[in-house]
Amino acid sequence: METSSTSINIPETKSKSKGKAPLSTTSKAVGFGVQQPRRGVKKGIAVGDFILRLCAMAATMGAAITVGIADQTLPFFTQFFQFQAQYDDLPTLVFFLIANSIVAGYLILSLPFSIICIIRPLATTPRLLLVIFDAAMAGLTIAAASASASIIYLAHNGNPNTNWLPFCQQFGDFCQAVSGAAVGSFIAGAILLFILILSAFALKRT
């Protein structure tokens, strides 16, 4: 006797469709998992950027105020012959005061943009704007500090070749205040350069 065998064909379309679903779900899960750590890292960089801006603002503001109020009058027996030292006696210190005041004002105005970077750490537009202006302000701060440092060096040591006498031998307090302001300005410039490095890491896509 011959037995007839029957075969049932099962369509493979369902199995293929079922096999695709877990792959898409897995890819979404992987993408979400990659985005979350990147967002957290960039938010941490933005918080550090905000704190460093406060430090740089305090340094530039302190340097400008210190130079602005630096004043010393040599005591003499008569009021008609007095020697006084102020920042506006030297054009370099005037430039130093103006430059540090501009940088301090910029840092105050940049704080809202830094807060936006904390709230939206993946946004690139505010970060790019900060990078452009931060680079300009860092150059201005370092230029002002370097110019004032050269004048302060001459004031402390003089120049025998040109018969420039050491200015700070008489006006010690004035020179000490201006020297501290120059150091504060250099610190602010270094902080701005470090902020630029942090911004470069924040702008990385991976």
Results as ranks from 00 to 15, higher is better:
Phe50Val: 04
Leu128Val: 03
Ala136Asp: 07
Thr26Glu: 15
Ser24Ile: 15
Asn100Ile: 04
Ile108Val: 09
Leu109Lys: 15
Leu129Asn: 08
Phe133Ser: 13
Ala46Gly: 06
Leu193Asn: 07
Ala145Ile: 02
Arg53Gly: 15
Ser101Thr: 14
Ser146Gly: 05
Ala59Thr: 08
Ile119Gly: 01
Gly44Thr: 11
Asp89Val: 06
Leu196His: 03
Leu198Thr: 06
Ile51Met: 13
Ala188Gln: 01
Ala21Ile: 14
Ala64Ile: 05
Ile197Pro: 00
Ala64Tyr: 08
Arg53Leu: 06
Gln170His: 04
Ala177Gln: 12
Asn100Gly: 03
Ala149Val: 08
Met137Ser: 07
Ala188Asp: 02
Asp88Val: 12
Thr125His: 09
Asn163Gly: 01
Ala58Arg: 12
Gly48Phe: 01
Lys204Trp: 00
Val103Tyr: 02
Val183His: 07
Cys168Ala: 10
Ile98Glu: 15
Leu109Arg: 14
Ala147Tyr: 04
Thr162Ile: 03
Leu23Gly: 04
Ile152Val: 09
Ser15Gln: 12
Leu192Glu: 10
Ile116Met: 07
Leu23Val: 14
Asp134Pro: 00
Gly158Ala: 04
Ser15Gly: 10
Gly158Cys: 03
Glu12Ile: 08
Phe167Thr: 06
Pro11Glu: 12
Ala155Leu: 07
Ala143Cys: 07
Ile45Gly: 03
Cys175Gly: 05
Ile98Asn: 15
Ile142Val: 14
Leu140Ser: 09
Asp71Ala: 00
Arg127Leu: 04
Ile118Ala: 04
Asp71Gln: 13
Gln176Glu: 10
Phe113Lys: 13
Gly172Asn: 10
Ile187Leu: 11
Ala138Leu: 03
Gly33Arg: 14
Thr125Phe: 00
Phe194Asn: 11
Val41Pro: 03
Ile8Arg: 06
Lys20Glu: 11
Ser5Cys: 07
Asp88His: 12
Pro126Lys: 02
Lys18Gly: 08
Gln79Ser: 13
Asn159Ile: 09
Gly189Ala: 06
Pro121Gly: 01
Ile132Gln: 11
Lys42Thr: 02
Thr73Pro: 06
Gly172Glu: 10
Ile142Lys: 11
Asn9Ala: 12
Ala63Glu: 05
Ile187Val: 12
Thr60Pro: 00
